[in-house]
Amino acid sequence: MRLAEDPAYTRLPGSRRALMGDVQYWLARDHLLLVEVVGMVEKYRRFDLQELVALTVRPTRQRLWQMLVLGLLAGAILAFGVFLIFLSPTDETRLIGEVCLGLPVILLGAMGGVLWVGPSCELRLTTSVQTLVLPGLNRRKGAEKFRAALLRAVQPMVAASSPAAPTRVEVPGDPPTAA
């Protein structure tokens, strides 16, 4: 049975879909299931909700590097196109130069896309026995949605856990409660 048809599982946000590298997160009553397609193998990793220690969000510079690479590439192609248009002696190379002027528009679109998906981050899940960088959750928006959904699931357990832990975990998007 597919997880989507299984009433025991709820899909969590933060899934990534790629040609051969899908990642999906599913939440059951007592565990979190990470399904990852690596090559031609579908791998399953289960995390008992009772064994989750912490979620750590760390901002990364991935977006900065992506913008830098795309910007430099666009700039280089643009400069090459201008060079061909103004300094080349033949019509054919001028035509190539005009095509080169169009390519940066696509790259600028990609830069806009990178900006639109928001800041990059790394989300780490620490359990009693391991720490794992959660795949596919490298954007702040997705990581926040995932964290909020997971916190809603573990909220009753957090409240019932040791007195050292906070009595209530702030869930982004939840209305504030009266003290």
């Binding site: 909700l49 912490a54 760390r58 901002p59 957090v158 856990s161 040791s162 975990v169």
Partner: peptide
């Protein structure tokens, strides 16, 4: 829960504690 930076390297961090925090593993 209130931590915003690593005390040593000043890396920006945001930690959310979950049920097993502070509990010895089974």
């Amino acid at each position: 829960a209130a931590l915003t930076n690593c005390p040593r390297c000043r890396q920006v961090l945001e930690i959310t504690l979950l049920p097993a925090y502070g509990r010895a593993p089974t």
